[in-house]
Design a protein around this nucleic acid. Structure first.
Lengths: 336, 336
DNA sequence: CTGTTAGCGCGTTCAG
DNA sequence: CTGAACGCGCTAACAG
């Protein structure tokens, strides 16, 4: 296919378009950026030329000239956890409207790598959203002084002056335990998640709180994913627990799977609960009692904050969003 | 916290570092890009200054000056399908080694949006990988002439001159049908996926092929996700099918869920198969017979091709990768 | 309304 | 081995 070019060699720049249209680069720039004050026939010529040459402005050059890249970075602990893509969807929904692109990085579960990944991202983007970051408080604090805005999702740290949104894990988890308690459960196993996770700490707090009310809790640490959940069940069953409260849906799904293998009936022999309400949880066998966390809304809220910071307006926001208990068939009356 | 600055106002540039270190910006550039030929004491001063000022080179400026952004774009039809993140992991594994970042975009299942998203990405990146693109052949062809390399995953189109890798859907699906056939199944329902999907077309081809061998096939179209699978089962059961071959694991998981609701036993009453072998499939109840597609390897292969194109070497590659049948407990002898 | 021009921050010759 | 100077492609004053 023919490489139609203004005059220069190979790459088509704003100059090529200007040449072909017979105007100056300034006019091209105006037309393409939607500036009104251009004679209509010039504008037409420019648009035609741009189309013909397949001209697309260089993002680097625009970024350099304007001082903004119109790109925001997102850091995710683990892309393969279905929870996170939903949050990203929320961000994406709104950021697209403002003509922003998303630079997504995955820290692959290594809290130590997060900071360097962020530092690198910062060079490319106008702002950053960190989803459930697991990095140390110190690293987090060091982000207070970077040039571009940083917004946190699901990480509220008292000493850290970074805007953030998150779900009210504590209340939701307390409510869930209440549900179990009303079903007569007195001994439960808590299959906990990664300790670097703020959500884990909050959920754990609620669970421990329950022991004040006569409920016996045994904690079984897990990695927070499906296979970890499956492995943890064997340990949990060694206790007298009649219910397994899982850190998240992935762990719960693993438990369900292992229970089926072992011939443990859910919920007759054992009640199981998750957290997050990822899509799979309503299609498991049995469907999972869990907590619906507003992933999409969380992403949208984070975007609004970030956009505010980007445009200088630092609005105030509701940091904690409510999550509601969803009762399905994986929980039932205590067998004893 | 104090904003230590060389002399200028606010942002710290290479000039700030040069000033503080008492050298020229050229020297700073050399040191920071690992150039050997610099007096050691200068180098030390520069590094100290950079550290002290928290200097990070602007990606836009570097990109403009070097003509490369060291960013590659990835287009995904749907972030929430667990299949795709695994492919991304594969790309990420290798691209990180070469110091490339990933710009990820989600077309949200709209084939018509893909082209414009790609066009926009092209301005930012040095190359693009399209995962299971659903855009029209014409749109695809228009990508042959863009300045930067484009690599396809899971989309082999005869007339399109773009390098690509994919799994051998046809052979794997044929093998799977053979498995079912050997279990005595003669009537199967094919719960198909989105028709824009190349994988769908290939898998469908294998299924139709089976009708040559005395197997009666009824196709039930689905959207390719869990809830669609659940809905489709009701329709599929209207036929006399003893087995449901599903477009992918998501559909199969939906079927499993709905079957449990309806009291249809799997595999006693109905055999169910998936495709992809996402992690959930080995933890479903019952575990799913499916086809293991090498997601990560696919991503890695695509990266190798892209990296080759980026450095001018256009190596040849093996376009089709094998996928193997994984037999679990969702398939069994035909009830009749 | 249009063209000229001065940066944006950095890499890279090219003299010294 | 070092620094001055130019150019990357584009936007945004500033003149005309």
């Amino acid at each position: 296919m023919a490489r139609a070019n203004g005059s220069n060699s190979g790459k088509v720049t704003i100059q090529s378009v200007a040449d072909l249209a017979g105007v100056s680069i300034a006019t091209v720039s105006r037309v393409l950026s939607g500036n009104e004050n251009v004679r209509e026939d010039f504008a037409v010529k420019v648009r035609e030329a741009a189309l013909k040459l397949h001209y697309t402005p260089s993002a680097s050059a625009q970024g350099l000239a304007k001082g903004r890249s119109f790109t925001v970075g997102i850091l995710i602990p683990d892309l393969s956890n279905p929870y996170f893509p939903d949050v990203v969807k929320g961000i994406h929904n709104l950021s697209t409207l403002s003509n922003y692109r998303l630079l997504i990085a995955d820290s692959d579960g290594n809290p130590e790598d997060e900071l360097s990944i962020i530092k690198d991202m910062l060079r490319h983007v106008d702002g950053i959203i960190l989803i459930s970051p697991r990095m140390s408080v110190n690293d987090l604090k060091s982000l207070e002084n970077v040039a571009n805005p940083v917004v946190l999702i699901n990480r509220m740290e008292p000493g850290v002056g970074l805007p953030s949104v998150g779900v009210d894990n504590f209340s939701a988890m307390s409510e869930l335990i209440g549900h179990l308690s009303s079903l007569g459960h007195k001994q439960i196993a808590f299959l906990s998640g990664p300790k670097e996770s703020w959500q884990q700490r909050e959920r754990s707090r609620a669970v421990l709180h329950a022991s004040n009310f006569g409920i016996i809790v045994e904690e079984v640490p897990t990695g927070g994913n499906i296979s970890a959940g499956a492995r943890a069940l064997d340990i949990a069953m060694a206790s007298k627990a009649t219910a397994a409260i899982c850190f998240n849906d992935l762990v719960a799904l693993g438990v369900l799977s292992r229970a089926a293998e072992l011939g443990i009936r859910v919920p007759e022999d054992l009640s199981v609960t998750g957290f997050d309400d990822i899509e799979f949880s309503s299609f498991s066998n049995p469907p999972l009692t869990t907590i619906r966390s507003p992933q999409v809304a969380l992403g949208e809220a984070a975007w609004r904050i970030l956009e505010g910071e980007l445009s200088g307006k630092r609005g105030n926001h509701q940091p904690l969003m409510v999550a509601e208990v969803v009762i399905r068939n994986s929980t039932g009356k205590s067998p004893r």
